[in-house]
Lab assay of single mutants.
Amino acid sequence: MAAAAAAGAGPEMVRGQVFDVGPRYTNLSYIGEGAYGMVCSAYDNVNKVRVAIKKISPFEHQTYCQRTLREIKILLRFRHENIIGINDIIRAPTIEQMKDVYIVQDLMETDLYKLLKTQHLSNDHICYFLYQILRGLKYIHSANVLHRDLKPSNLLLNTTCDLKICDFGLARVADPDHDHTGFLTEYVATRWYRAPEIMLNSKGYTKSIDIWSVGCILAEMLSNRPIFPGKHYLDQLNHILGILGSPSQEDLNCIINLKARNYLLSLPHKNKVPWNRLFPNADSKALDLLDKMLTFNPHKRIEVEQALAHPYLEQYYDPSDEPIAEAPFKFDMELDDLPKEKLKELIFEETARFQPGYRS
């Protein structure tokens, strides 16, 4: 834990890192770190609560700039109880001085990944967590956004079992017609939660990839272990087919990539493993919904509104309290091709509203 900075004593240090967030945020305490930044909790002297502050230093890398800009653009436009918001952003007053960006968010005690390492969940908890994931996802999908990296560590939890989806750095506007060349190379989302079509096709992607990830998360809540822990690309596919069985001819016809289709045709026939054999203690309604989410063919996979209306979630289902976005989200430009200098300018502009004396 960093010592509390005395008023006016300059930035606090946390594990050798400068955290320049005073005077409003003090009493910093280390939480963890990701690929390009550290997260601390801090005391907000204005709202009198502890908050989470993520320090991001992305400006050396085009990919990190892209992810940072995506996350900020999306989260500043989203407003939903099951999606983490941005409360404040701290950065230098000029673009030349801006080396880091500090993002202030609600402090959540833990995440689903940490929880599943230590606790076996009751059916009631599984049901409530799944409902909140789908409630947040309904809003995301209504904005025409794909999260693309749903996994237990991106689901934040607090002691009252509130759940918030975080990390929109890989999110995209849904565009089933656009052929994202190089899709697989830039697709760094965790393999275990990846839909089979991501490994088999490169053309376009749809909201059904997020539903697949939610199915993987439900299976993990039922058993405290990942359902498809593939060691590499082909191993991942083999794990999936080992449980779902061989795809039907109709399902194979959806695979545009001939090499991928021929690979699947070359494999020995596998039978589907019954879900109640894998999860003998699970609620039968939970397994019915799991089956509809972990469907090989993305066109037959359940959609988020149908999933919310499934009998497993009937005690929570309330369409009048499951809000959607006001308007579909649009990125003005494809960020993939922009140089990091341009992305830095866009991050600077996007964060201006939090600067003292800002006038829109």
Results as ranks from 00 to 15, higher is better:
3 A>Y: 07
5 A>K: 12
12 E>A: 11
15 R>T: 11
19 F>K: 03
19 F>M: 04
21 V>S: 07
22 G>C: 11
22 G>W: 06
23 P>C: 00
23 P>T: 13
23 P>R: 04
26 T>I: 15
26 T>Q: 04
26 T>F: 13
26 T>M: 01
28 L>F: 03
30 Y>D: 07
31 I>V: 03
36 Y>S: 15
36 Y>E: 15
38 M>D: 09
40 C>D: 03
43 Y>S: 13
43 Y>N: 15
44 D>E: 15
44 D>W: 08
45 N>W: 09
46 V>Y: 07
48 K>P: 11
51 V>W: 09
57 S>R: 14
57 S>C: 11
57 S>P: 15
58 P>K: 15
58 P>T: 15
59 F>N: 13
60 E>F: 09
63 T>N: 10
64 Y>C: 15
66 Q>Y: 12
66 Q>I: 04
69 L>T: 03
71 E>F: 00
72 I>E: 06
73 K>P: 07
77 R>S: 04
79 R>T: 08
84 I>F: 14
85 G>M: 14
86 I>C: 05
90 I>F: 14
90 I>P: 11
90 I>T: 02
91 R>F: 07
91 R>D: 00
93 P>I: 09
95 I>P: 06
95 I>F: 15
98 M>G: 14
99 K>I: 05
100 D>V: 14
100 D>S: 11
102 Y>C: 07
107 L>N: 10
107 L>G: 02
107 L>V: 09
112 L>H: 01
112 L>S: 04
113 Y>S: 10
116 L>C: 04
116 L>Y: 01
121 L>T: 02
121 L>M: 14
124 D>Q: 06
125 H>E: 05
132 Q>P: 06
133 I>C: 03
137 L>T: 12
138 K>H: 06
138 K>A: 10
138 K>F: 02
143 A>D: 14
143 A>Q: 13
144 N>W: 02
145 V>R: 03
147 H>K: 05
149 D>H: 03
150 L>E: 02
152 P>K: 02
154 N>Q: 12
158 N>C: 10
163 L>R: 05
166 C>M: 01
166 C>H: 05
170 L>C: 03
171 A>S: 14
171 A>P: 05
172 R>Q: 09
177 D>V: 14
178 H>K: 10
179 D>N: 13
180 H>N: 15
181 T>K: 09
181 T>E: 13
183 F>Q: 10
186 E>F: 01
193 Y>D: 04
193 Y>S: 04
193 Y>I: 08
194 R>T: 06
195 A>N: 01
196 P>T: 15
197 E>T: 01
201 N>R: 07
204 G>M: 07
205 Y>E: 09
206 T>R: 06
207 K>M: 15
207 K>Q: 10
208 S>G: 04
211 I>A: 10
214 V>R: 03
215 G>L: 07
217 I>Y: 10
220 E>W: 04
222 L>W: 03
223 S>L: 08
224 N>V: 07
230 G>D: 14
230 G>Y: 02
231 K>E: 08
231 K>S: 00
232 H>L: 15
233 Y>E: 05
234 L>K: 03
234 L>I: 07
237 L>F: 05
240 I>F: 15
242 G>W: 00
244 L>R: 00
246 S>H: 04
251 D>G: 06
253 N>C: 03
255 I>L: 13
263 Y>F: 15
263 Y>E: 07
269 H>L: 14
274 P>N: 03
274 P>E: 07
274 P>Q: 15
276 N>Q: 10
277 R>L: 10
283 D>P: 05
284 S>T: 14
285 K>Y: 09
285 K>C: 09
286 A>Y: 06
290 L>Q: 14
291 D>H: 05
293 M>A: 09
300 K>S: 05
302 I>M: 00
305 E>P: 01
306 Q>D: 04
306 Q>L: 14
309 A>C: 07
310 H>I: 05
310 H>R: 00
311 P>D: 12
314 E>R: 04
315 Q>Y: 01
318 D>A: 13
320 S>R: 10
320 S>C: 11
323 P>Q: 04
324 I>G: 08
325 A>G: 12
325 A>R: 09
326 E>P: 02
330 K>N: 11
330 K>D: 03
331 F>C: 08
332 D>C: 02
332 D>Y: 15
336 D>R: 05
337 D>A: 12
338 L>N: 09
340 K>G: 13
340 K>I: 06
341 E>V: 13
342 K>I: 15
343 L>G: 07
347 I>Q: 14
347 I>R: 10
351 T>S: 15
357 G>Y: 03
359 R>W: 15
359 R>I: 05
359 R>D: 07
